[in-house]
Design a binder for these strands. Structure first.
Lengths: 348, 348
DNA sequence: TTGAAAGCGATACCAA
DNA sequence: TTGGTATCGCTTTCAA
């Protein structure tokens, strides 16, 4: 039926061991022999059985990239960058390619664990978890335990955008400075004279949500400005759209709104337009992420820039072992303010 | 070291065979025995070795979803829908879950083949190829051959958004009616009175590009309107942005521009804004795909709607075998016009 | 209902 | 430089 390594060996009149060596290129093989083997491979149209190979070698070239929402360009860009970095590594076994695959958790911790188990079953070479983590201690523990096991078993674990697991020396973590990001955004608006600022936040139980809010509040407190209304919701457009109604209900005189991320900001903008409000001018909008499409969608948007491409690439490198993590496993990633245009001061 | 099925068997005082049967739930096992086994699994914190299991069973629960560009929400949405459909199937071996993974080809046919090989090595249960195909006969043949082999080996193959492989009865294909889409868009603009229409097309060698252009030209011809300038480029924002300069260079009096997809349309809009042109009004813009964010970005955009979610879901079902393809393997998917607002007639 | 044992297809150690 | 072969961990007949 299917062509096996043994078939190739027979055709090339060598032992299976030799064929394996030719395919993996890890041991010296006489040029003539190698030729013969390769010809046989060609003629028989042989395809290595990755399953068997992984079993025997006790390693695989699967690398899992877990993201919250694959339809969100934020994760798409991160994942894309990671995949590039991983593909370039190019020195795996049998073909020199790692299979970087993206798994969509939909933000559900259960699905996250399920995917981790599946990857654990496959003895994945590495796993990258992208995006903020849950703050629920139960899930945190479950995830930490699973990751620790995988790390023990030789799987490289990389966190990107979520805090490191305390006490775990095995996992590298790219940590976004969300607090500073939140602070920068608020300070910018305060500097323009805004005093009534609404905040459309992310899900209440995510690390990113809390950290960003922390920074925001810190800036307000430092300026002695009272905190405006805050809403919570998922990181999507609908959430931003809904937030606007509630924020204005709680304070009709808002002059600025901070959105949890660019996608939420788009929803906010849509809602503002429906209300006949101009952006900026009537209301200034600010958000996180700095996605490419925001430039066209909301030219007046002020954002905090997360180095998506850079972080994705580094996550990929860490997963490949191409880049060594610092001793404590934590790689800090700064957030920088992007004032793209003319975020306006509040109307008189 | 790692806990194996044998360890579990020993602890539960049964044979490995029995443990396997309990885990897979495919054979009758006495309730008491099953209890004992499950307890042992729990106590030892046993994790099935998917590699070994796949090897022995000659099947895997990996499902590959190949997309051109994971950073493009179009593919993100499609992939997300497919993953949902696949995850719901829930009757695989050992845990009842398929591992749907997304592979980013970057539009490169080489990488597409590489990923296919990798999935072939893993004996993937199914493969979904999303997005238009290349028209280059060499790559077409190579791809077709590879897909045929995989299908023979038991992998289910689903094409989504690209034409079926002629003569291949094994692969199901969701075929978007891009020609009609192109026609609808042009007819809409013509109906408003536009006579000088530019076209920012996709890569010259893709099926989607040609089919959409075909429909466009068909409509123009039927109306006796001469074809305007056309540019070609990748399906991204930069491409749309660059197209504007060239289109106007070739015809300064354009009143409307059709973009190859929504992402390109965003680039077009950005460029138009830079030129101080209003959309619509000075220029009307139309595009394909109908992505959610376009609503906020370009409220005046007229698009052809491809049922992204629906197609993704059906692709997933076909991959799972939950939905049976028609006899000829082709599932037609209609394109419908979405006039979201006030696409304007040309200025007098 | 359960057990024994023969593979599944490659890898890698030990010899030659 | 090459060959023989035990092993990887699980699935699946075939018997009991």
């Amino acid at each position: 039926m299917t062509v096996t390594l043994a078939d190739v060996a027979a055709r090339a009149r060598v032992s299976p061991a030799t064929v394996s060596r030719v395919l993996n290129g890890n041991y010296p093989v006489a040029a003539a022999t190698r030729e013969r083997v390769l010809r046989a491979v060609e003629e028989l149209d042989y395809v290595l059985n990755g399953t068997a190979s992984s079993l025997a070698a006790a390693t695989s070239d699967l690398v899992g990239v877990l993201v919250h929402d694959i339809a969100d360009p934020f994760f798409g860009i991160m994942a894309s960058a990671a995949q590039h970095a991983i593909g370039e590594g190019g020195s795996g076994r049998a073909g020199g390619e790692k299979l970087a695959v993206v798994c969509n958790t939909g933000g559900s911790p259960e699905r996250e664990l399920t995917y981790l188990t599946l990857l654990q079953r496959q003895r994945a070479a590495a796993v990258i978890l992208m995006g903020g983590g849950l703050e629920d201690p139960v899930h945190l523990d479950a995830t930490a335990a699973k990751l620790a096991r995988m790390a023990e078993a030789g799987t490289r674990v990389v966190l990107c955008g979520r805090p490191p697991v305390p006490g775990d020396a095995h996992t590298a973590a790219l940590v976004f400075d969300n607090r500073t990001g939140g602070r920068l955004l608020a300070e910018h608006l305060l500097g323009l004279g805004h005093r009534r600022i609404g905040y459309a936040a992310g899900p209440a139980d995510r690390t990113t949500t809390r950290h960003r809010l922390d920074g925001h509040r810190q800036a307000l407190a430092a300026a002695g400005v009272p905190e405006g209304p805050t809403t919570h919701g998922p990181y999507d457009r609908v959430s931003g759209h809904a937030a606007v109604a509630e924020l204005f209900a709680r304070d009709p005189d808002l002059t600025a709104i901070v959105a949890a991320n660019d996608t939420v900001a788009l929803g906010v903008c849509a809602a503002l337009r429906e209300r006949g409000l101009t952006i900026p001018g009537d209301v200034s909008v600010a958000g996180f992420d700095d996605l490419p499409f925001s430039v066209d969608a909301v030219p007046a948007l002020t954002t905090v820039h997360l180095p998506l491409h850079g972080s994705g690439t580094r996550a990929g490198r860490l997963a490949m072992g191409t880049e060594e993590p610092p001793a404590d496993g934590t790689v800090p990633v700064p957030c920088t303010l992007v004032v793209r245009d003319s975020t306006a001061p509040p109307r008189a």
